[in-house]
Each structure stands twice: as structure tokens, then as C-alpha cells.
């Protein structure tokens, strides 16, 4: 991810989007465990940080907004209390300054800041609560904001407003956003890069415009075909459901649902292949298509 950019992580329910977010912050709930890999932020591997160092990264450098705003907040504390607490966990500020920061951020998001600050979470509407959660995540100016379906529960006008604000924030504050969603339209509205995830693996990655215009991976194609704005008139759902991640099929995890699956897909996991600058796909078929094209060009 690059500074000031927004990467959308898309995929259907159960594809592993949320667990990716939790893994980045190292708060995967037990019995889940991170067994390998790296999370690199500014040349630091977050998986190798100590507990206290990691705590400081959370909220300050990586901020996460959850889908369900009611479960974001502690039911017995005020919204303002939450935000001030978050600020104080990272910075020592004189009295009142944290409150001012909180009020300012909430006003930015179009909330009646004073009232929301004093309210308990259950006293706010879903939309207000979600924006309050967003304000809380933004108040420390994180390097990367991770929104896990954060705008999905908002109504259309509010969603547009929040997306607009995020985009503006992106440019002004050198922040990056990891925009996790299954809403392709929302992804298209804010993101410039996109990564498509299936069964816990990224299957296609690249510039959003290119990927959406010309999807290479059969899963991306199928995903786009099931959305009205990409395929007007005829919606085609993807047959079947995502695999149980504990019982992944051998080979490419998408082959049982893939309309074009060939012999090789059953036996070997496809590797990520760079097809264009910044454009990567993990599919045997795309790979062989490119290879044949290359041979034709060579001969």
C-alpha cells in the first residue's frame, strides 16, 4: 500500500476479508492464530514487535473501523469517553484537549458533536454511531485506516457523504485506506487499487479501473457479473458457496465453482503472476494464455 492511496479488498462473505484486518492488528480471536508471514509497515515487521510496541501501533498507526457500530462501543460508557480514552492511550494531553480533538472530528463528519459526545452508544442511531466510530478512528490521524464494511450499514446519502469525506481526508492527511467491502460500487467510489480475495488468498490485484474493466481471474469476472452496475440486465450469481477454510480443496481453491477449470487447477495452487505493471493474477488459465501469447509473439 502506498501513502495517500486507497486499496479496496473485495470478496464475498467468508472470503477472509475481516480476518485479514484483524491479523494486521494482531487481534485475531482465539483459537485463531497467525502462523506465518509478515506485516510490513515502514520497514518494520509488525508480527515481530513486542506487546507494548504493538499496542502503540494500534489506533495510532493502524486504525480499524468495524462493521457493527453497536459492538464497537462499550455499552456503559459515553461516546466521548471512548474517544478521549483512545487519545489518552497514545498521547499525554492536558485536560480538555482530547475532548476538543474529539469534538472537532465529530463535527467534521457532520455530527452534532456536543450531544454525541455526551451520549451513550445505545442512544444514537446506527448512522450516527458509525460516524462516531469513524471519528474515533480518525482522531489520532492514523497512517492507515482499515474500514471493515464500515459504510455498508449507512444509508445511501450518508454513505456518499462519508466516502467523500474519506477521500478528502486521504488527500489532505497522507493517510492510506484499506477499504474492506463486498460493495463493489462503494469500492469503485473511493479506491484506486483493488485486491480480490477468495478463500483467504488474494487472487487478483491491480489498478481498480483496469481490474473492473477487464477482469482476468475467473472469480473476479464472476464477482463483477453478479453486480448490477457492471452487468446491467442479466445478473449471474456465482454458483455454490465459498469453501470451508479448514477443508480447502487441493489445487486452486476456486476450481469447484470455476466455469473454466482445467486439469491443472485440480492439482496445483496457482502462483501470483505479474501480467502488467502492478497487475497480478493467480490463475493457471491466465498464465497459460499469456504464455501462448508470448510464444506466438516470439515465433
Amino acid at each position: 500500500m502506498k501513502e495517500g492511496r486507497c486499496l479496496a479488498l473485495i470478496g464475498e462473505s467468508g472470503a477472509g476479508k475481516s480476518i485479514t484486518a484483524l491479523s494486521l492488528l494482531r487481534i485475531v480471536p482465539p483459537p485463531g492464530k497467525i502462523t506465518g508471514g509478515e506485516v510490513i509497515l515502514d520497514n518494520r515487521d509488525l508480527l515481530k514487535l513486542g506487546k507494548e510496541e504493538m499496542r502503540l501501533v494500534r489506533g495510532e498507526e493502524l486504525a480499524l473501523v468495524f462493521q457493527d457500530s453497536l459492538s464497537t462501543f462499550n455499552p456503559v460508557r459515553t461516546v466521548g469517553g471512548h474517544i478521549c480514552e483512545t487519545i489518552n492511550a497514545h498521547r499525554r494531553l492536558p485536560n480538555g484537549q482530547a475532548k476538543e480533538m474529539a469534538l472537532e472530528k465529530m463535527a467534521d463528519l457532520g455530527l452534532p458533536a456536543g450531544r454525541v459526545f455526551r451520549s451513550f452508544p445505545f442512544q444514537l442511531s446506527g448512522g450516527m454511531r458509525q460516524r462516531a466510530a469513524l471519528a474515533m478512528a480518525l482522531c489520532l490521524h492514523p497512517r492507515i485506516l482499515i474500514t471493515d464494511e464500515a459504510t455498508t450499514s449507512l444509508d445511501v446519502t450518508l454513505q456518499a457523504q462519508v466516502l467523500h469525506y474519506l477521500k478528502k481526508h486521504l488527500e489532505d492527511c497522507c493517510m492510506s485506506i484499506l477499504f474492506i467491502t463486498h460493495d463493489l460500487a462503494a469500492a469503485a467510489a473511493v479506491a484506486d487499487q483493488v485486491a480480490v480475495i477468495y478463500a483467504g488468498r488474494i487472487v487478483e490485484k491491480g489498478q481498480l479501473k483496469k481490474v473492473f474493466k477487464q477482469p482476468l481471474h475467473p472469480y473476479t469476472q464472476a464477482l463483477l457479473r453478479s453486480h448490477p452496475s457492471f452487468c446491467p440486465g442479466t445478473l449471474k450469481p456465482i454458483q455454490g458457496s465459498p469453501p470451508d477454510l479448514a477443508l480447502l480443496p487441493e489445487g486452486c481453491s476456486f476450481y469447484p465453482r470455476c466455469p473454466e477449470a482445467a486439469g491443472i487447477c485440480l492439482s496445483r495452487v496457482p502462483e501470483m503472476l505479474e501480467v502488467d505493471s502492478g497487475r497480478q493474477v493467480a490463475c493457471h488459465l491466465v498464465k497459460s494464455a499469456i504464455l501462448t501469447k508470448g510464444e506466438i509473439a516470439a515465433s
Partner: peptide
């Protein structure tokens, strides 16, 4: 979930 959320904000 709100405990997980509190952790995600880096509270002690």
C-alpha cells in the same frame, strides 16, 4: 466485540 474493538484502538 467491544473488547476486541478496544484492543484495536491500542488501549492498555
Amino acid at each position: 466485540d467491544f473488547i476486541r474493538s478496544a484492543r484495536s484502538r491500542g488501549l492498555k
